[in-house]
Design a protein around this nucleic acid. Structure first.
Length: 157
DNA sequence: GCCAACGTTGGC
DNA sequence: GCCAACGTTGGC
């Protein structure tokens, strides 16, 4: 059996949208919107497929940590907040006929029993090249290799 | 709160 | 097309 599923990590500032918020959402599902970085956008648009699994990461937190796993339940579609004048993420340059920004829907799968804090992940064998741990890494959506996924989920057990 | 790293903007 | 200035992210 071949596993073609891909793995990802999304960052969120827990003060704006946290794991608890996701868990409390209808069907434990939310629209992942407001991403305004082209590299991240490309992964939302081209990379993420239904059924892909995603680490949910709290940034700007004490400590910043991976707190759970969610799943892609709807693949890329135009991010409506880009067209909403009243939204913080409104982008007047984005043309509704050729949308610049993309959303996916994510559904919570399960929280980690214990959050995996950033300092805890540093130095773990097998995670040396993990994008999250790279100095200066600011991507809010990033790929995770199957090996990294296995290492991190094993730590969470 | 500080500041390094990074992406974007805009003058030229 | 270069690059300085600026704004933002996010670890610490």
């Amino acid at each position: 059996m071949t596993d073609t599923r891909r793995y990802w990590l999304v960052k969120t500032d827990a003060s704006s949208f946290s794991w608890t918020d996701l868990w409390a959402s209808p069907k434990r599902t939310t629209r992942w919107d407001g991403v305004r970085n082209y590299q991240a956008r490309n992964m939302l648009r081209d990379g993420m497929k239904r059924g892909d699994l995603v680490f949910f990461y709290h940034s700007n937190f004490d400590p910043s940590a991976i707190v759970g796993i969610c799943e892609v339940v709807r693949e890329g579609y135009p991010d409506p907040t880009a067209f909403d004048r009243k939204d913080d993420h409104f982008d007047p340059k984005s043309d509704p006929a050729a949308p610049t920004w993309i959303s996916v829907d994510l559904r919570a799968v399960a929280p980690f029993r214990k959050p995996l804090a950033l300092p805890e992940l540093r130095g773990v064998k097998g995670l040396e090249k993990m994008e999250l741990l790279r100095k200066g890494s600011r991507l809010s959506v990033m790929p995770v290799t199957p090996k990294e996924w296995a290492v991190v989920t094993a730590l969470a057990e």
